[in-house]
Design a protein around this nucleic acid. Structure first.
Lengths: 192, 192
DNA sequence: GTTGAAGTATACTGATCGGTATAGTCGCAA
DNA sequence: TTGCGACTATACCGATCAGTATACTTCAAC
């Protein structure tokens, strides 16, 4: 817990950016939350944009590590891991601080595709999808890319749905759908 | 096309709010785009918040009407309509002005559930889901609510995915997944 | 021909935005 | 003891934010 000042600022910024939104959070609010001054903030981050990018990169790193660890702790086989993903998502959604996906939110706040914030957000989902694709491949899907994209649509949809309205059972339904899609993708003959 | 001043302001605001984001769009920019003055804007809208709510309500009304019309133009039976939804979404995503779902974006910009903007956005998806539920019921789904929720997760996921990265085939995969989920929900014995 | 409503033009308010300048405090190392 | 880098304190900058006050034009109804 011994954070240096730069980490303390980033930690404070992360909390505010995620819970209130990026544009809604002023530099002064970050400074106050980190118990420091603007001068120090601008010593470590050249601009607010720079701080935002740092927030997203760290969130990317932390979230993916946490997520994979959670999944691995719940399941051993690739197929079980694919399903465990939905349990992890479900538990994540249940925490009161849940405010949707930081990357989806950031992309919504900075809609232009060329924007650096938008790009960093897009990278997260690229890597997240790669993770699911690899699991799909390992468990013998006929088309790992298709299955992975389909499952990631369910996940993103569930996150957004839960963000719009809490406790609507999105994660559970996403898992039920995932079970069907996984089985369909594993059998040689499509189930329809 | 003969818009009165209030409609002109709302039209200009809608374009800017959707393409650039709500917080990123100042009142002055709306005024300039509508070729009017602040005084007139504040005659018809008591505050920027009021204008934002009006934007979302009109978008709700217009989009749902347009969407249902598009679906009805593509299919006759309830089952065909469920699938046509994904074609409409796909075509919508292809237009260059596409910037994701205005309601998802608004909810991301105003993350607190109690916020009026957030609430209006949530209402849209409630009604959208009701529409899908009704179609699911009409085509004999064993559990219309479940199927509708699952399909809406695919739709929301596809929209978000396309917003993050254009032309990644999200809509097509969503439709493929939908076909499987619909068949599974129509058969008496789950296909797994 | 007058009145009144609709809309324009423009200057303004106070607050907040991101970012900077200057001076001072603090602890540690040579 | 001196010097130095990390950090603080505070006041400031110009720009922009949402919102208002005042005066003016335009035009149609009576």
């Amino acid at each position: 817990m011994s954070l240096n000042l730069k980490e303390k600022i980033l930690y404070a910024a992360s909390g505010l950016f995620y819970s209130q939104g990026i544009r809604a959070t002023g530099v002064d609010a970050v400074v106050k939350a980190a118990n420091t001054t603007k001068m120090s903030l601008y010593k470590y981050f050249s601009s607010k944009d720079d701080l935002v990018i740092a927030f997203l990169r760290k969130r990317d790193e932390d979230f993916r590590a946490w997520f994979v660890e959670q999944v691995n702790g719940k399941a051993d086989t690739p197929k079980a891991k694919l399903l465990a993903i939905f349990d992890v998502i479900s538990e994540w959604m249940a925490i009161p601080e849940f405010r949707g996906c930081a990357f989806i939110n950031a992309a919504a706040e900075f809609p232009l595709e060329g924007n650096p914030v938008h790009q960093v957000s897009a990278e997260f989902y690229d890597q997240f999808r790669s993770y699911i694709t690899e699991l799909s491949r390992q468990c013998g899907s006929r088309s790992p890319e298709s299955l992975a994209l389909q499952l990631s649509l369910l996940i993103e949809g569930a996150i957004v749905s839960e963000q719009m309205k809490r406790h609507s059972g999105a994660a559970e339904q996403a898992k039920q759908a995932a079970i069907i899609l996984i089985e369909a993708s594993l059998s040689d003959i499509p189930c329809m």
